[in-house]
Write a protein that binds this DNA or RNA. Structure first.
Lengths: 339, 339
DNA sequence: TATTAGCACTCTCTTTGTATGAGTGCTAAC
DNA sequence: GTTAGCACTCATACAAAGAGAGTGCTAATA
């Protein structure tokens, strides 16, 4: 079902105009740019409607692109712009000399992305199924209070306070570090469970009481540090979208479900992923498009950044910006891990 | 301008019914509970309108309370319920054996508060103008990467990654701890500024290059740990409010301005604070009520929790719940500091 | 055969008019 | 001081009419 050049031109014009204005597009305004009469345009549009690329809100309105039409446009018609070097450097410069944890980098990336695109943005902290614990540290903060710190191979750092039943002496601290080195470092959080920790604790004899809270906290930390976090920025941007008015409550509710959002942003194996409306298979997002781009650390995709906006989002402008930021995030994170 | 008992009864009835239904209240429904005719009620309501306690959306509608009327109700008429012991213990139990940092406690408190009240909730992490640095720690994470940890007298803990120009040896680490003990611990973040840190760094001679990033990071951390953070939970609850429909975008924008929200929640010197609509002196919140209660640590108010909802919020139910949670937060935080 | 002008048709949107009903304010009687 | 009665006001719902935008179809044209 190959489209004629003229049909492609008309479909492109309808979509680009609709994205710009949000209004249905009539045959009259289109014929100007095509040097054919409005009747010809009407005939063509009628056929584009027949194959499901355009639809009519009602008989006497112009045409708006269907989600299927937009999909065709993105796959076949959309001009591929790249962002200017100026824009690229301007974003890059905001990450120069970055000092911080992965989640700070992604929070910044989400903020920048939301500013640039005018959309709600989402970022996922690095998640790697092969992630393992790289380092465990413990810092006493009070007589019975210690801060346990964990660093993952992904660069994720987490810390948590732990309160002990008694005072922590040097012997106990040494024991803790030995256990961490023997049972935790180099392992992934899937490798140990509550039962394993308990049997480990029991084997410690009179030190069990002292060690148990520390080991439980460490186990919790490993779990938390292995989970991916999602960061959402610019939620209020969705409130301005008229076509999302009835969805916005449900969308905000969905935002609380990190796993669901993460799976939408992280979908597929390709670097860049575009979900148009119902393609997300999620009722709350049936009128939104979700555009995301994965970032890689050490040659593996470990997370993604993206935006959520109305279906009539400016794809050709937004997509290269998302890719650019995901590349930068990947680079910054990679440098972070190397050290 | 003392109101007659009957006027008080009528004002109370109008307000409580309006809070429940959101609809204007007519004279007919009111006369049933008062054993007078609707005409009498009308006369009384007319006078209550004259003094500005009630208003009419339009001639043939019933009356709704004005913000002034609600203020009078809260100050003089509202029954003061207390929450049941069952409710109190149920909330208390969610904080038993709490392991975590202050901000985790407040995040939990905000979540619980939002669940209980059905409103958007806000919590402020402890802020104390007299706060000082209690402890500084440093943990090496990589050859050139260290994590610097700071603990404030308020119990706030913050950590930040710092990248050094060279490898950190034991001598440098010792020097860092010495400087921290001499210049940072026991001081507040206001006591040092960039200039002071720079002159300090210069005085270190050949160690300056090594120490500067560490000291800059430490200074940043002290600043961050001294600032109060605000936590907002259940934002989407505002989307359900019809009377806030036109304000919700502006409200969400305001939520990004931590200082503005903090000042609203932390207003005044009383433990409990109620801002009805325009009393907040903030256009975005002219149709919302903000109810908050300060929590104290060591006998001083250092933060607050509260809710933001429509002016027709169920004050008599919400207020005691907020107070209860603020008390619990104060207790949990106080225990945390003691250690 | 592809294109186009012309025209009837459809449907939304806005305006106007009318009826309904809830609730009020006022007046005169109790 | 209280109340019954009634005229009045205003929002809301609904129907009818006109304007406007855009279409689909048909017949003429290149």
């Amino acid at each position: 079902m190959e489209l004629s050049d003229r049909k492609k031109k008309i479909l492109t014009a309808v979509i680009e105009r609709y994205i710009q204005t949000g209004e249905p597009v009539g045959s009259k305004v289109l014929c100007e740019g095509l040097s054919v009469s409005s009747a010809t345009v009407r005939n063509e549009m009628s056929e584009l409607s027949d194959i499901g690329y355009l639809e009519q809100p009602h008989t006497s309105a112009g045409r708006i692109p269907s989600q299927k039409g937009i999909r065709f446009y993105i796959n076949n018609l959309m001009p591929v712009y790249d962002i200017s070097n100026a824009d690229r450097f301007s974003v890059q410069s905001r990450f120069d000399n970055f000092d911080g944890e992965p989640k700070d980098i992604l929070a910044d990336a989400a903020k920048i992305l939301s500013d640039i695109t005018g959309c709600t943005s989402v970022a996922i902290t690095p998640y790697d199924i092969n992630a393992f614990i790289k380092k465990v540290e413990m810092v006493p903060l009070g007589a019975r209070t210690v801060l346990i710190i964990i660093m993952m191979s992904t660069g994720v750092i987490k810390s948590k306070i732990c309160r002990c039943d008694g005072e922590l002496d040097i012997k106990s601290a040494e024991l803790f570090y030995n256990i961490a080195a023997a049972y935790f470092i180099g392992r992934s959080s899937d490798d140990f469970n509550v039962a394993a920790i308990q049997s480990l604790a029991v084997s410690l004899g009179d030190k069990a009481l002292m060690m148990t809270p520390l080991l439980v906290t460490l186990t919790d930390l490993a779990k938390e540090a292995s989970m991916c976090n999602i960061i959402i920025e610019g939620q209020s941007k969705l409130l301005g979208c008229k076509e999302l008015e009835s969805d916005v409550y449900n969308i905000f509710e969905q935002f609380k479900n990190s796993a669901s959002i993460a799976s939408l942003i992280n979908k597929g194996n390709e670097k860049t992923n575009i979900l148009i409306g119902r393609e997300s298979m999620n009722r709350s997002f049936e009128n939104t498009s979700i555009i995301s781009s994965k970032y890689s650390v050490g040659g593996r995709f470990v997370g993604a950044v993206g935006v959520i906006g109305p279906v009539r989002i400016d794809y050709s402008r937004v997509i290269p910006n998302i890719i650019n930021i995901s590349d930068i995030v990947g680079n910054v994170l990679s440098e972070l891990i190397e050290e």
